[in-house]
Design a protein around this nucleic acid. Structure first.
Lengths: 140, 140
DNA sequence: TCTATTGTGGACTAAAATAATCTTAAATCA
DNA sequence: TGATTTAAGATTATTTTAGTCCACAATAGA
C-alpha cells in the first residue's frame, strides 16, 4: 500500500510542460509530446486542454497546430501545475468552511494540518517550471 | 476539486487514538470511541485492528474489553499513524525501484519529488500523539 | 456453565475518484 | 477541398476508498 501525493495525471502534465518549454519557439503537437514523452495521446489532450483553459499554454488549431507556453517558465510554479490537475491542495477537507467539520474549534489536529499544508505549498511554490527544464536539459 | 492529503480513514484513526490516549488508564471500547468521536463503528473497528496489528494499541476481548495504547503517546509520531492507514508516504510511485520509471535517471522531477517527500516526512515525524492530546485537552 | 459483551478476520458491497476512450465538431493550412 | 489538429462532451473502465456483514473466538460475570 502506498500513499501517493502526485498522481499519474500530474506526472504526465508536468512532463508535457517540460517538453513544451524545452522546445520554446516551436509549436509542438499533442502527437509529438505523446510520442516523445510516452503519454497516451487522448489522455494527454485532456490534460493540455486544462492548461489552455487556465491560460498556461496557448493552443493552435489546424494543420501544423499544437501548443506553446503562454507564460515564462520561470513564472510558473509547480504548485500551479499540480493544483491545475489535482485540485486545490488541502491537507484535509475538514478544514474548509464549506463541508467543514463542526468539531473544528476543538480539533486537536487542525493547527498541525494547517502547518503541514503551508509547508507543502511553500515548497511547491518555490520550484518553477524553469528549474525543471534546466534539470531536464542537464540530464539530456 | 480538491487534492486531499489526509483521508477520512486517517482522520477517524487519529481521533480514535487521541481519545484512547486521553483516557489512558482505562480500557475503552470501540463503542465508546464511536459514540464519543462520531465514527461509524464497523469502520472504526477495522481501523483499530490495524493499530493492534502494528503494535500501536492493545486489545482486550470479552465483556468490558476494549483498547488501550501500547506505547507512550510521546513516542508515537503522526507519520507512524498516517502510514499505518494510508501506506508508506511516497511523493510519486515513479521513484520506487519496483514499478519504477525507466526514465528515472534523466527525470527532471525526481530530485524535487524526493525533497518534497522528505519535508513532509520530517514534519509528520516531528509531531507526536502527545502533542495532539495536549491540544485536545487544552480545547476541551 | 450459560449468556452478554466485545474484539477478529475474511468476504463482500457501495461509492467515489481516477484514468482512459470515443465521437462529433471546429479551426487552419496547403 | 482535404488533411491535420485542437475542443468539448459523453461515456466507459479501473482502481481506490469507504463501509457493511457475518461467523467465530475470547472473556467477565451471574
Amino acid at each position: 500500500m502506498l500513499m501517493e501525493i502526485i498522481r499519474r495525471n500530474t506526472d504526465y502534465g508536468v512532463r508535457a510542460l517540460v517538453y513544451i518549454a524545452a522546445n520554446s519557439g516551436n509549436i509542438v503537437s499533442a502527437k509529438d509530446i505523446s510520442d516523445q514523452m510516452e503519454i497516451p495521446i487522448e489522455f494527454l489532450q485532456k490534460i493540455l486542454q486544462k492548461f489552455v483553459r487556465i491560460g498556461l499554454v496557448n493552443s493552435y488549431r489546424g494543420a501544423h497546430g499544437g501548443f506553446s507556453l503562454a507564460k515564462d517558465p520561470s513564472e510558473v510554479s509547480v504548485l500551479e501545475i499540480v493544483e491545475a490537475l489535482q485540485g486545490k491542495l488541502s491537507m484535509n477537507k475538514c478544514l474548509l468552511g464549506k463541508d467543514g467539520c463542526p468539531r473544528a474549534p476543538q480539533c486537536p489536529l487542525k493547527n498541525n494540518w494547517i502547518n503541514m499544508e503551508q509547508k507543502l505549498i511553500d515548497f511547491m511554490n518555490g520550484i518553477t517550471l524553469q528549474d525543471l527544464v534546466d534539470q531536464y536539459k542537464a540530464n539530456a
